[in-house]
Design a protein around this nucleic acid. Structure first.
Ligand code: DCP
Ligand code: MG
Ligand code: MG
Length: 1125
DNA sequence: ATCCTCCCCTAC
DNA sequence: TAAGGTAGGGGAGGAT
């Protein structure tokens, strides 16, 4: 939707009033200047690496560059970094990745030879640590294995977990994440000893600690006094190193950094420079017209020109933009604090599985949220400002369109809100003090915030950098106490206040927080849930934003109480199944969600919709290149690759003028297109190529482009080892086991040797992938199966899908040479298989085509004979089927070895149609028939969430997170079809809460349908009295039939009372202006009715305040009704 | 029916 | 000047 629409917090109207700033406002802008992040981002040695390496985005890493040379240097450096990351990723498991840059031996990275396993929640997150390790030549293990892991990294484990950790870590260093971050900062591998986890130091470890302490005694003493952090550690390290505790890797990166990276014979570097040159040339040359235009514009436009801050003026635009975008930061921080479920931990396996589901116990959910987060953090230094209106924004310009990011509570008194333009805010509150952002500080506080939460509760679901849900059901009898302890500690540690809401579900906890703010907490007991939720306006419910609110308003629904009057089926019909359910539940305070500690990552992307202005396609392409670079880095940082790439383009709406917001995108038409490729990628050049193609397909005028975004989905893990490892482990154990035995296995199986024939797999997969990747980067056509050369596929026999999995129809449609090769791989059994099948058809007994077999479907090799993009390839067909077999095996093994899983499985795996009967024959000795889900996408999330965390982890980890084997059509015509579908608002008049509108007024329908006899009668009477629209007449008639109606067979429920109340309230609303006398009469009759009927008594009492309120508002007095008896 | 694509909506 | 991102949920409608 357009940023310009009326739902915006900004009114275009109010630009007048440029008043003077208050006295206080001078300081933040004039005094401290406003170099937002660039400087601090490079500050070394912040305690836990807070300032650096926070985001995979390169944009957070370097200062902006003013001249072209430093720009190029930085680019080259970046390229090299990225190259390193590539190398270390593909060198996992086999060393051959290194040959690619063997000329540069010193580029191995400081963590060469180091392999970490991250246990539990850490700051920075395991994702970031992973990115960091891979970037600097180290390795990151998803699973603990004594063979591979050299260091265990963790922080803040509860004591119970510590015990486990002690037992399985035996001898391996257990260190804090700061070891890694500090090492990176120092650009060398620091000694880990000072970073040992103190909590873990048992007798055996103590020796090392004592040793460490002893050798640096003097230093530590003096430093301890200053409560030092990284500085002290840094000193400790120097000492340790000088004693020779551990050999250091030479710090060699800086050499390259200093000069001449452009001349490095680094292949990637050169090709990059070349590419950049051509890019640049094409931008400059363009067509004749645009050259002159360029000249003219740059001459004509002084510093205030549009070009200045747009893509036109800054070759580093994307980079600089992300360095300053608050929304970018809060968007990516969310990831930082979320635990992604690939991060399985041994302790999770070890913990008891019998954490009995608290079925009977009432849940205790705590929602914690920092108060006006950005403001609080910044004004810690200025306590005198805490009761003055303060906001955070990029600019203090009272006439500008900079946005308010956060306003403190005094400022909110003036009506300030996040998202408002500064110029509007200044109108509302002329003496507002505005501070610039301090992103480093926000991150640091957020880190502390989450550390505290995790210290107190194992079940934390991160919502954003300043907000989380805790499930305290099992850990505390007194969640209110827990909340206050947590809030106190947050205040003490961070100097900022947090508020908390406590209730029985996530919805109510969240709503409670709103009441609690600022700096408070609020508990909504189960019995009050109804009461609290009833009074709310619908937009107070999370999930109801501008659009839903408006849609509901058009049905005359403004409050939850009104919403409750609409039957679920009708809501579902009008809003869709899920949304309808949500509305129905939420307005009653019902919420079935559970606190999810781990969450799935489904897409990775980046977009820019500010400052985007182009003159020609070349500039668009250059921008796309930067964006792809960014996305590629983010993918690598997250350790994933994607198969579907989606490009989103915002195009100036026809007739739309220059946006209200400076450099904004204004009124836009937005469109998106995607293509799916057979092999998941994170390769920058590949992305660039694809995104350019997608961009071209829009046929958009370059000058009209106002925003571009790129997103990858259908994600797969970048680490092939992941599944391999798992497979090994599982295969290594043999017979049927109980769950208990299994757990013990998990504890010890790192000791085991895997089957020798399974070990090869990793290396082969890797080399295959590497080969494919290198082809891509050389711009060669992708290798086809035959060229791929290695007969290694034959060796991977054990990984092939059992022959029974193959869809015979698909097989037969394959090119003959592929069939031949497959036949070879299957040692001739394939042709036999085909022959048999043909026999069967002859007998009219085609088992394979009549039996619905999901797995067969998944293994289908969709061969698109049509035009295919250059990067498409037939090769992955094999990979796909191989992969699907992985999935089967893993899932199968879970079922086989863990009886409880069969149970769990039946509990929550829902199949679409025809459950697949999986025929598993095979090379690894499996011979069973079982049901299998094809992926986690078929799992019922809510059930999954209720499982014990361990089970959840298992399932998430062992099942494929995503469907891997759906057909890959490439950008085949259909997937690239422009769609101009209208999403017009459906005007179903199925329900309307305008009760007094319509020919027979709408209330008649409701009353007739009601199960309440009284309401039915009212409807009847209304009809009998000739559809009289005056309520008083109806009530007059009603009172005559009182004896027959009320007292004896009074049957009514809450819903009847509610609709009765709504009926009256709307009547009040309708009549209060125009016919106050009618209202008076009605309520006198009603008062009389209360004597005879409890129902009317309820309705009357509930509506009376509304009546008196309305009367008072309009006439300044109240009805005297009491004498009416 | 179910999947997929192209949206829209929401929250921070 | 100013930095309107990110990612999940979900609906409509076409393809299968
Ligand atoms: N439109 C928005 C919403 C939020 N934020 C940033 C600034 C906020 O400080 C932070 C946290 O968002 P909250 O919704 O929690 O808002 P606050 O913490 O500022 O206020 P509250 O006390 O209501 O939580 O995210 C932002 O930049 N722009
Ligand atoms: Mg907040
Ligand atoms: Mg918040």
């Amino acid at each position: 939707m357009s940023f310009e629409s009326s739902r915006s917090k900004n009114s275009a109207a109010s630009s007048g009033a440029s008043r003077k700033r208050g006295r206080l406002s001078a300081s933040p802008w004039s005094g401290r200047g406003r170099k937002p992040r660039a400087e601090s981002a490079r500050t070394p040695g912040a305690s836990s690496g807070v300032s650096d390496h926070a985001s995979p985005s390169f944009s957070t890493r370097r200062a902006p560059f003013s001249d072209f040379q430093s720009y190029m240097m930085a680019k080259n450096r970046k390229l090299r970094d990225q190259f390193d990351a590539d190398a270390s990723t593909s060198s996992l498991g086999s060393g051959d990745g290194e040959s690619r840059h063997s000329d540069n031996d010193d580029d191995k990275g400081i963590f060469h030879g180091v392999s970490i396993f991250v246990d539990g929640y850490t700051v920075p997150s395991s994702q970031e640590l992973r990115a960091c390790m891979l970037k600097h030549g180290g390795r990151f293990e998803n699973y603990f294995s004594r063979q591979t892991v050299t260091h265990i990294v963790c922080s803040h484990l509860p004591e119970s977990k510590m015990k486990n950790l002690r037992s399985f870590s035996r001898g391996l260093p257990v260190v804090k994440p700061s070891w890694i971050m500090d090492s990176v900062t120092a650009n060398r591998l620091l000694n880990w000893v000072p970073y040992q986890l103190e909590q873990l130091l048992t007798a055996s470890h103590k020796q090392q600690k004592l040793f460490a302490f002893f050798t640096i005694k003097g230093e530590v003493r003096s430093n301890d006094a200053t409560n030092g952090t990284s500085m002290n550690v840094e000193k400790k390290n120097k000492l340790m190193d000088s004693i020779g505790c551990e050999t250091d890797k030479m710090a060699n990166l800086s050499k390259c950094e200093s000069e001449g990276c452009a001349e490095t014979n680094d292949l990637g570097c050169q090709s990059y420079c070349k590419m950049r040159d051509t890019e640049k040339k094409s931008v400059e040359m363009g067509d004749e017209g645009s050259i002159t235009e360029t000249r003219q514009e740059s001459l004509q436009r002084p510093s205030s020109s549009i070009a200045q801050h747009s893509t036109l003026g800054d070759p580093n635009f994307v980079e600089n933009y992300f360095k300053n975008s608050r929304l970018h930061f809060i968007g990516t921080w969310r990831k930082r604090y979320r635990r992604l479920f690939l991060n399985n931990t041994p302790d999770a396996r070890q913990r008891k599985l019998c954490v009995s589901q608290s079925g009977s116990q009432k849940a205790a959910i705590i929602h914690v949220d920092m108060d006006c987060f950005f403001v609080s953090v910044v004004i810690r230094k200025y306590p005198e400002l805490s009761d003055k209106p303060v906001a955070i924004s990029h600019s203090d310009n009272a006439k500008g369109t900079a946005e308010i990011s956060s306003a403190n509570y005094p400022a909110r008194e003036y009506g300030l809100q996040a998202g408002m333009f500064v110029r509007d805010a200044k109108v509302l509150c002329p003496h507002l003090t505005i501070f610039p952002y301090d992103f480093d500080a926000y991150q640091e506080v957020a880190d502390q915030f989450y550390t505290i939460l995790h210290e107190h509760c194992p079940k934390v679901q991160a919502i954003s950098c300043d907000e989380a849900f805790l499930d305290a059901t099992e850990i505390s009898d007194d969640p209110e106490k827990l909340a206050s302890v947590i809030r106190q500690q947050i205040a003490d540690t961070t100097g900022c206040t947090a508020s908390a809401g406590i209730s029985v579900n996530m919805l109510m906890a969240r709503l409670a927080t709103r009441v609690a703010k600022p700096n408070g907490q609020f508990f909504i007991p189960p019995e009050k849930v109804d009461e609290y939720s009833k009074e709310l306006p619908v937009e107070a419910l999370p999930g109801i934003g501008y659009a839903l609110k408006e849609k509901l308003k058009s049905h005359h629904i403004k409050t939850c109480a009104q919403l409750r009057l609409i039957p679920k089926e009708i809501l579902q019909k009008d809003f869709g199944k899920k949304v309808g359910d949500m509305l129905w539940n939420y307005c009653r305070g019902i919420d079935h969600r559970t606190v999810h500690v781990v969450q799935e990552m489904k897409s990775v992307g980046a977009e820019v919709n500010w400052g985007v202005r182009f003159r020609n396609v070349e500039e668009c392409h250059y921008f796309l290149t930067s964006l792809c670079k960014e996305v590629s880095l983010r993918l690598k940082g997250a350790g994933v690759r994607g198969r579907t790439i989606t490009l989103k383009v915002r195009k100036r709406k026809k007739g739309a003028s220059e946006p209200i917001k400076y450099m904004g995108c204004g009124e836009c038409e937005s469109m998106s297109r995607s293509m799916t490729v057979p092999s998941a990628t994170d390769n920058e050049e590949m992305l660039t190529k694809m995104s350019k193609e997608l961009f071209g397909s829009f046929h958009v005028e370059a000058k009209d482009v106002r925003g571009i975004g790129l997103q990858l989905s259908k994600l797969e893990s970048a680490e092939i080892r992941h599944e391999a490892n798992t497979l090994e482990t599982w295969i290594a154990s043999s017979s049927e086991k109980t769950l208990g035995q299994l757990r013990k296995d998990a504890e010890f199986n790192e000791e085991k040797k895997a089957e020798p024939n399974m070990v090869h797999m990793t290396a082969q997969c890797n080399s295959e992938i590497a080969g494919y990747a290198s082809h891509l980067s050389n711009n060669d056509p992708p290798p086809c199966v035959n060229q791929a050369g290695d007969t290694s596929w034959a060796n991977q026999f054990s990984l092939l899908p059992p022959i029974g999995h193959l869809d015979i129809n698909v097989i037969k449609s394959l090119p003959p040479e592929i069939i031949a090769e497959m036949n070879e791989i299957y040692h001739g059994r394939l042709s036999e298989f085909i022959r048999k099948h043909e026999d069967r058809i002859d007998q009219g007994n085609d088992e394979f085509s009549t039996m619905p077999n999901l797995e067969n479907k998944r293994a289908q090799l969709s061969v698109d004979k049509g035009k295919r993009a250059i990067y498409s390839s037939d090769l992955p067909s094999y990979k796909t089927s191989t992969k699907s077999f992985h999935d089967c095996s893993l899932a199968w093994m879970i079922m086989r070895y863990v009886p409880i899983f069969s149970y769990v499985y039946h509990l929550f795996f829902s199949f679409k149609t025809g459950c697949s009967v999986l025929k598993t024959v095979s090379s690894v000795g499996i011979d069973r028939t079982d049901l299998m889900p094809s992926s986690l996408s078929q799992v019922d999330e809510s059930v999954l969430g209720q499982l014990p965390e361990e089970v959840e982890m298992y399932l998430r980890d062992f099942l494929p997170a995503h469907r891997n084997s759906d057909s890959f059509g490439g950008p085949s015509g259909s997937s690239i079809n422009e769609s101009r579908r209208q999403h017009g608002i459906k005007s179903t008049e199925n329900f309307d809460l305008h009760l007094w509108m319509g020919k027979p007024p709408n209330w008649v329908k409701y009353f007739k349908r009601s199960s309440c006899l009284i309401l039915n009668s009212i409807a009847e009477i209304h009809a009998d009295t000739g559809m009289e629209n005056l309520l008083s007449s109806t009530l007059q008639s009603l009172i005559l039939s009182i004896p027959s109606l009320c007292s004896e067979n009074e049957e009514w429920d809450d819903e009847a009372v509610s609709i009765g109340c709504e009926f009256l309230r709307q009547y009040i609303e309708l009549k209060v202006d125009t016919d106050i006398e009618e209202l008076y009469i009605c309520f006198r009759i009603l008062k009389r009715l209360t004597k005879h009927s409890l129902f009317f008594s309820c309705v009357y009492n509930e509506v009376l305040p509304s009546l008196q309120g309305a009367v008072c508002k309009n006439y300044g007095g109240m009805f005297q009704l009491s004498f009416a008896e």
